[in-house]
Amino acid sequence: MTTPGPVTPGTPFEPSQPPVVEGISPSVYSTTESFKEKFLRKTRENPMVPLGCLSTAAALTYGLYCFHRGQSQRSQLMMRTRIAAQGFTIVAILVGLAASALKSRP
């Protein structure tokens, strides 16, 4: 077994530049997106995901409210509705992923 020699980098480290990794090229965006712009773009791409998230949150909130008031039957119904809304959201995410994967194919 041979001992490795000293490592001397070809170019000095520059903190303002992305590191150069063999086989990987960093993608540089021309403009940075704000949170609001990214949220609106993602919502336009797949509008069912925010709808599913809102319906899940609404069912959970109303179910907890009914539980607090002692309406156990309605609370159970809303928890089951929440599970259905979560399932809808997961399916919407998967359909959106499949659609974007098919769209990005040449």
Rank of each mutant, 00 (worst) to 15 (best):
S27C: 08
T61G: 13
T56L: 13
K42Q: 14
N46K: 08
G52R: 02
Y29C: 10
A58V: 06
G63S: 10
S27A: 12
T43Y: 02
F35I: 06
K36D: 08
P50S: 01
R74I: 08
E33C: 10
F39C: 07
S25W: 08
R41A: 05
T56W: 07
S25A: 12
T56P: 02
C53W: 08
K36F: 03
L64N: 15
N46C: 06
M48G: 07
S30Q: 12
H68R: 13
C66Y: 14
L54K: 04
Q76L: 03
S55E: 11
Q73L: 05
R41Y: 01
H68T: 07
R69P: 11
T32F: 13
H68S: 15
E45D: 03
T56F: 10
R74V: 09
R69C: 13
E33K: 12
A58N: 08
L51I: 05
L40Y: 03
S55L: 10
S27W: 10
F67I: 04
E37A: 02
L60D: 15
P50H: 02
A59C: 11
S34T: 00
G52L: 04
L60I: 11
H68L: 13
E45K: 12
Y62H: 13
P26K: 07
P50C: 01
S55N: 09
A58M: 08
R74A: 14
P26H: 05
P47M: 00
K42L: 12
F35C: 08
S27R: 11
A57S: 10
Q76N: 10
T61F: 14
N46W: 03
S34F: 00
P47V: 00
R69Q: 15
S25P: 02
A59P: 05
G63C: 06
K38Y: 10
A59S: 13
L60E: 14
E45I: 01
F35P: 04
L54R: 03
T61L: 15
K36N: 09
E37W: 01
G70C: 01
E33I: 04
A58T: 08
P26N: 07
L60G: 11
Y65V: 09
G52N: 04
L51C: 05
K42V: 04
S34Q: 01
Q76R: 11
R69L: 13
K42G: 11
T56I: 04
L40V: 00
N46P: 03
T31I: 07
L40N: 07
L60Y: 12
Q71H: 15
V28N: 10
A57C: 09
L64T: 11
T43L: 02
C66E: 15
M48C: 09
G63F: 01
T32E: 15
A58W: 04
V49G: 04
S75I: 00
A58Y: 05
S25M: 06
G52P: 02
T43R: 12
C66A: 15
R44V: 00
S34D: 02
G63N: 08
L64E: 15
R44K: 06
K38D: 02
L51H: 05
L40A: 03
Q73G: 10
P50Y: 01
L60S: 12
K36W: 02
